[in-house]
């Protein structure tokens, strides 16, 4: 018997048609098919979704928290990048 762990998968669920798949958690599975079946059992038992994506976690590349300062802080003082300087007519709603 090998003690090798099954790979980790990230699970994304679409709650209803038209909405995005949202990350709901992760699980261990031997392959993609097993990952989807297990996601069905673990994450959709309370009618949470109508579609499942499974992505092997090793295929997700993340930014490094150590880079936060140089990545995100420079945008803090550049509020002119937000489209908040337009005068909108009153009739326009949902903006």
């Amino acid at each position: 018997m090998s003690n090798q762990e099954w790979p980790l998968w990230e699970i994304f669920i679409r709650s209803k048609a038209g909405l995005d798949h949202k990350h709901v958690g992760s699980l261990h599975a031997a392959d993609a098919q097993m990952a989807i079946e297990m996601a069905r059992d673990v994450y959709t038992r309370r009618m949470e979704g109508i579609s499942i994506w499974a992505v092997e976690s090793v295929n997700i590349h993340a930014s490094n928290p150590d880079d936060a300062e140089s990545f995100y802080e420079p945008s803090n003082d550049k509020i002119y990048r937000h489209p908040t300087f337009y005068d909108l007519p009153d009739e326009l709603t949902h903006m």
Binding site: L27, H28, A29, E37, M38, D41, V42, R45
Partner: peptide, 11 residues
């Protein structure tokens, strides 16, 4: 044997 299968069996 693993949590996911545990849940599948109880489902």
């Amino acid at each position: 044997p693993i949590l996911e299968v545990d849940m599948a069996l109880t489902n």
